[in-house]
Computed example of a mutant assay.
Amino acid sequence: MKTPTTFWAEVILPAIRAKVAKILSSEGFSQMKIAKELGVTQAMVSKYLSKYNPPEILNQIMEEIDTLAVLVAEMIKNDTKKEEIIKTIERSFLKFLSDEKFCRAYEMYSGISGKVCKDIITSSERKEVIDELTKALEILLKDEKFARLIPEIRSNFAYSISNPRDLNDVAAVPGRITVIKDKPYAMPPEFGASKHTAKLLIKISRYNPKIRSVINIRFGKDVEEAVKKAGLRVIYLPRNLKSIEEVENEIAKIFGMGEPDIVIDPGRHGVEPCVYVFGENPWDVIRKLRVVEKYL
C-alpha cells in the first residue's frame, strides 16, 4: 500500500539526498564522505551525482525540497549532530503533510485522495495539543500561588488545534481546576471538555488564529494591581454585557482590533468577575501568569 510515508521514503528522500550530494560535492566533499553523511553507498552517491533526475510529480514541490536540502547540507558542513539533522528532516515531513502541493503530488503517486495527508497531520496535531497542555497543567498544579488565583466558578485551561471549528477541536480540563486541601487539582485534559473556553478560542481564531490558549483566574484589587505592575496589555469588558455569549463575542472582537495579553470581565449582577489570560500556547499563558504572580 502506497502511504504518505512510503511516498516520502521512496520519492521525496531520494530527491533530497541527491540535492544534498550535489551541494556537498560542489563544496569539495568526496563521494566516500558524502556516502557516510547520507547513510548510503558510494555507488548510490555516484548515481545521485551523474544519473538522478527527480520524477515529474515532484515539479510542484521542488522549491520546498531544494530549501530543505540546502538546510541539511549546511548542517552537515557545520558538523551538526546527526540526531539534530534527523529531527529536522522528520519535522519537515510533518510540514510537507500539511502542504496542499505535497498532498497533490502524493495523490498522483498513489492514486489515493490527498485528503489523507491532512487527516494524518490533524491527528498528529491533536496529540501534540494534549501532550503540551498536559505538561503545562502539571507545572501549573505544582505552583503554590496558583491555588489563590482560582475563582469561585473554578478555572479552566484550554488549548486548541489550529483553526478550531467546534468544541471537539479544543482540549481543556474536565470539571475545571479546583482546590483540594489548599492545593490545585485537575483531571487530565481532554478534547471537548469545556464549552465556554472552547467557544472563546473558536471565536477568537476567526480574528487572530495565533491565539490558541487561555486560562481564567479570579478578579480582585490585588490581581488588578499585579496585572498593572506586570506591564501586560489589558482590556476591560463593558459592564452592560448580559450573557456568556455576549462576553465571548466581545472578547473575540477585541482580538480583531489588537492582541491583549489579558481581558478582564468586571462582572455584573449574579456573575462573578473574571480575568482571562491568553497566549499562543499553554507555555505562553503560564509565562504571563507567572509575571502576574510575581507582583501578588
Rank of each mutant, 00 (worst) to 15 (best):
N168I: 06
D169K: 07
D169I: 03
A171K: 05
K181V: 14
P184E: 03
Y185G: 08
A186Q: 07
A186I: 05
P188S: 09
P188R: 11
P189M: 05
P189W: 03
E190D: 13
E190H: 14
F191N: 01
F191I: 02
G192Q: 02
A193P: 08
S194W: 00
S194K: 01
K195M: 09
H196K: 04
T197W: 02
K199W: 11
K199E: 09
L200P: 01
L200V: 00
L200C: 03
L200I: 03
I202G: 02
K203G: 03
K203W: 08
I204A: 02
Y207V: 12
Y207A: 15
N208K: 15
P209D: 15
K210C: 10
I211E: 07
V214H: 09
I215L: 13
I215W: 11
N216H: 13
K221D: 14
E224N: 10
E224R: 10
A226V: 02
A226T: 01
V227D: 02
V227A: 14
K229E: 12
K229N: 11
A230K: 04
G231N: 08
L232H: 10
L232D: 11
L232N: 13
I235C: 10
Y236H: 12
Y236C: 04
L237W: 02
P238E: 05
P238R: 07
R239K: 13
R239E: 08
R239S: 11
L241V: 00
K242D: 00
I244Y: 08
E245W: 01
E245Q: 04
E248G: 00
E248M: 02
N249E: 13
I251T: 05
K253H: 11
K253I: 03
I254W: 08
